[in-house]
Amino acid sequence: MSRVSENSSSAALNFSLGKAKSKLEDLQMKGATLKDISRPSDNPISNVEALSITSNMSDNKQYQRNADYALLHLNVTEKSLEQLTDLLVKAKEIAISQSSDFYNADVRKNIANEVNQLRNLALSIANKRVGQKYIFSGYSTLTQPFDVAGKYNGDKGHTTVEVAKDFFLPLNLNGHEIFYSSDDTSDKNIHPLKEIKEPDTSKPVENKRELASTEGENFHKRDNIFAQLESLSVALETNDAVLIQNLLEEFDDSISRLITLRTRVGSITSSVMNSKSRLESENIEGATRKSKLVDADIAEVFSDITKHQSVLKTTYQSSQGLMNQNLMDFLR
């Protein structure tokens, strides 16, 4: 007949109590943190997926901040283009009204002062900043894009920002494409020297003098919004109705170019807003999935706590006789 020692009974009792306490502590921890996973070993697969979702949500939050930054620049750019368009429409209205012979030289000289103010306003719009950065200077955001004479000092770069994973959008327009004509204003006629037939090289010819080189960069006429306003002002001061009439087509081209640029900015703004909305939707879906993986079921947790508290209490009561024994109980 085998006999169970007192040490074995005590060890079995301590093991049962420790197991019940450990399970109750885990449930109480879940109830306090409302998390089903408190350490990676609880559920390694769910923990890896939850970490991946957390990383993606963190990236999306940065993309959303980038989108907000892009929207700020695009809204300022669109507002500036709107103001510049209204300015040119006003200048065109002045040119239309002053192109007829109805007004005399004195009236046109007075109107020239208004045109000069329009030019100053255009220069102010051209040098607009967001914070400390100029929005129309390309990559050279700390360089003032236009000087007093209307010369462009920036570059033709477009700053891009990542508003979604591997999705980059430009957030600015450079001053060259806004204020300068988009057409190549260089001489499009074929150079007359190119039509001359090459000389017969079989006979030696003694050169009497060196010909100047005809190759080089094309010359560009000064065709920009500032030049148009200056030309209108000069035409009004000199009472030149013909020049005023010739400026109407140039104003139409500039206004059409600005409308095209405003359309481009609007399409970029729409893309940024769509991307931002998509990121918000992804964050909601990610948070829902992460909650299913990590968060604990409150009703189930507190129900299990109550159940295991009863189990632990019953274990204490059943082991009370063994735990309260002393030396006299063994001597009887």
Score class of each variant (00 low, 15 high):
residue 40 P to I: 12
residue 63 Y to A: 05
residue 43 N to M: 04
residue 57 M to N: 12
residue 58 S to H: 02
residue 40 P to W: 05
residue 52 S to L: 10
residue 72 L to T: 15
residue 65 R to E: 12
residue 33 T to Q: 02
residue 36 D to Q: 15
residue 60 N to E: 11
residue 77 T to H: 05
residue 39 R to W: 00
residue 28 Q to E: 14
residue 47 N to Y: 06
residue 41 S to V: 11
residue 59 D to I: 05
residue 49 E to G: 04
residue 59 D to M: 03
residue 40 P to S: 02
residue 70 A to D: 10
residue 66 N to C: 01
residue 51 L to D: 05
residue 41 S to C: 08
residue 37 I to T: 05
residue 67 A to Y: 05
residue 41 S to A: 11
residue 30 K to N: 08
residue 69 Y to Q: 14
residue 72 L to D: 15
residue 44 P to K: 01
residue 44 P to G: 08
residue 31 G to D: 01
residue 38 S to K: 10
residue 53 I to D: 06
residue 68 D to T: 15
residue 74 L to C: 05
residue 37 I to D: 03
residue 29 M to K: 12
residue 63 Y to V: 09
residue 71 L to M: 13
residue 37 I to S: 02
residue 57 M to L: 05
residue 62 Q to M: 06
residue 74 L to E: 10
residue 40 P to A: 07
residue 57 M to K: 06
residue 36 D to N: 15
residue 37 I to C: 04
residue 29 M to A: 12
residue 65 R to F: 07
residue 37 I to L: 04
residue 52 S to F: 06
residue 78 E to R: 07
residue 67 A to P: 02
residue 63 Y to T: 12
residue 76 V to M: 00
residue 76 V to S: 00
residue 69 Y to K: 08
residue 68 D to Y: 02
residue 56 N to D: 09
residue 52 S to D: 13
residue 38 S to A: 14
residue 53 I to F: 01
residue 38 S to I: 11
residue 48 V to T: 07
residue 55 S to A: 04
residue 37 I to Q: 01
residue 57 M to S: 06
